[in-house]
Amino acid sequence: MKYFAGIDIGSTSIKIVITDEAEKIIAHSVNATGANFHKNSMAAFNSLLDKENIKRDDIVYIASTGYGRKLLKEADETISEITANAVGARKTVTGGKVKTVINIGGQDLKGISLDEDGNCGNFVMNDKCAAGTGRFLEMVARTLETEVGNLSNLHFSLKGVPAVINSTCTVFAESEIISLLANGHSHEGIVVGVHYSIAKRIARLIKRIGVEDIIFFDGGPAMNKGLVEAVENELMRELFIPEIPQITTAYGAALIAKEAYEEEAVHA
């Protein structure tokens, strides 16, 4: 049996997807990146193989992607997370053509528009700072003394009016939230305010490349249904959320690994 691996080394987590020749996901994992991400990626990779009972030799091709992609010497191919994300998204959706991809990562915010053939046509990324990214949500959760996973619950239990968050800069937003709390605003209201402030930022960014259906929304924060609702309202369109939002990029890398492997086989 031949398998292909895509390893996405992001700023907060390492995502691994293994596919078979039919391009089906047969195993996947999400682990924290930690400090030594080379060691941690290999550990995560090996433990996934162990868990799923896959022989290392059966993995015929590895493609790495994400910020740490170039440092993974074990990879046969490196690919930028933008391309990998586009490829993964295109394959994940079966009922139509994905035209726009929105991805929120640990430290960045990406918008990709796909052309008719599903290739990456244009894309935008946030500049230098972490405003509106996974890290931002973590800060919010920490400040409200809750878990990131709980933000969605808070969002939907709001009774009353949401708070307005003006700053998108992580540092300023933090002090803004603290003063909102001091002024007696509810946690729920603040969370909704935060979601809308992120959603607005996403909408502004994404409009630079044009928004077209189907819109694919992935990355860890896409699991937050409250945020999804806010983005849908800001864009006034429905979003497609994959089953496991974190692994689309790794899946794309695995697909690219397969393609590269087959191409090499032709030339060999």
Partner: peptide
């Protein structure tokens, strides 16, 4: 470099 690589890949 990510953006440039993605552009080149496309």
């Amino acid at each position: 470099s990510t953006r440039i690589e993605a552009f080149i890949e496309s």
